[in-house]
Amino acid sequence: METLLQQIVNGLVVGSVYALVALGYTMVYGILGLINFAHGDVLMVGALVALQVVLFLQKAFPLLGAVPTLLIALTVAMAVCMALGYIIERTAYRRLRNAPRLAPLITAIGVSFLLQTLAMIIWGRNYHSFPQLITTTPLQPVEGVFITPVQIIILVSSALLMTGLILLVNKTRLGRAMRATAENHRVASLMGVDTNKIIATTFIIGSALAAVAGVMFSSNYGVAHYAMGFTPGLKAFTAAVLGGIGNLGGAMVGGVVLGLVESIGAGYLGSATDLCHLPSWAQSASLIETCANGGSFELLSSNYQDIFAFVILGIVLIFRPTGLLGERVSDRA
C-alpha cells in the first residue's frame, strides 16, 4: 500500500513540473497555433541562470539565508527568461506569423539548438550540481511514504501558479484580450486589442513559468546541464496535447496524468506482465523452471517507461481526437 502511495506522490511531483512547462506550450499554441520547440530550452536557461546567481550569492553574501538566496535567484532567472522569451518571439517568430505553417516550426528547432549551443559555450559541457539550499531530509507524512521539503514546495507552488494563471486569463482585462486574440487575431485587433503586445505578453508569461519550472527541476534533482531542457520539454509537450492543446486546464490535467501514468506504469508494468503469474497449466516447462524460487519472467518492464506517455496519448487521441479537455472542433477548424 505504501508503495502505491509513494508512486502516486512521485507521479504528482513529476506531473506538476510537466504541467508548469506544458502551460507555456499550450498558451503559445492557443494564441499562435505554433509549437514553440524552444520552450524546454528556456527552462534550461532558467535553471542555469539561477545556479549562477546562487553560486554568486553564496560567495558574496554567505550570511544571506537559504530562502532569500533561492528567491533572489528565482527572480533573476525569471527576469532573464522573460527577456529571452520576448526576444525569441520578436526575432524568430513575429515575421513568420503568416508564413507556411512548418516554417516557424523549423525556426523554433533552430532557436532550440542555438540556446543549447550558447549555453554550452557559457556554462560548459559538464553537469553542474545545483546547491541544496533546502534540507533534503525526507519527511514521512504517512509511515513508509517519503516526501522531501523541496517536493512539497514544488506541489504547492505549482498549484498556486496554475490557479493564478487561470484567474489571470479568465478574470482580467489582459486575459480577455488574450482569449480574444486566440479566438481570432484579426477581429481582436479590429476591436482595439494590440495583438502584437498580447502575443509578446503570452511568450513572457510562458517563459517565466518555464524559469520557475527550471529552478524547481534543478533544486529537486540537484543537477543542471545545457541539454537538460529536451526531455522535460518533450514530455510537457506530450502532456499539453494529451490534455487538449490550447486549453489551460487541459495542460494541467495532462501533466498530472502523464506524471502518474509514468510512475505507476514503471512501478507495476513488470509484475503485471510477469508470465510467472499465469496459472501453472499455461506455463511451459522451461518457464516453470525460471519461475521456481521466486524468479520472474517479465515481458515488459520499466525499460518501457518512456513509451507509456506516447501509448496513453495515442489511445486518448483515438477516442478523443482533440485531447482530454479539448473542445470539439469541426473539420473546418
Binding site: 509549437i35 506530450t238 496535447v241 506516447f310 501509448v311 495515442g314 487521441l317 481526437p321 477548424a333
Partner: peptide, 22 residues
C-alpha cells in the same frame, strides 16, 4: 491516426518513432 489533424498528428507520429526505437 486518420482522424487526427495537424499538430495532434505530429505528436502521435513523434511518439510512434520513439516507441519503435525503444
Amino acid at each position: 491516426v486518420l482522424r487526427l489533424r495537424g499538430d495532434y498528428l505530429a505528436i502521435v507520429t513523434l511518439g510512434f518513432g520513439e516507441i519503435v526505437r525503444i
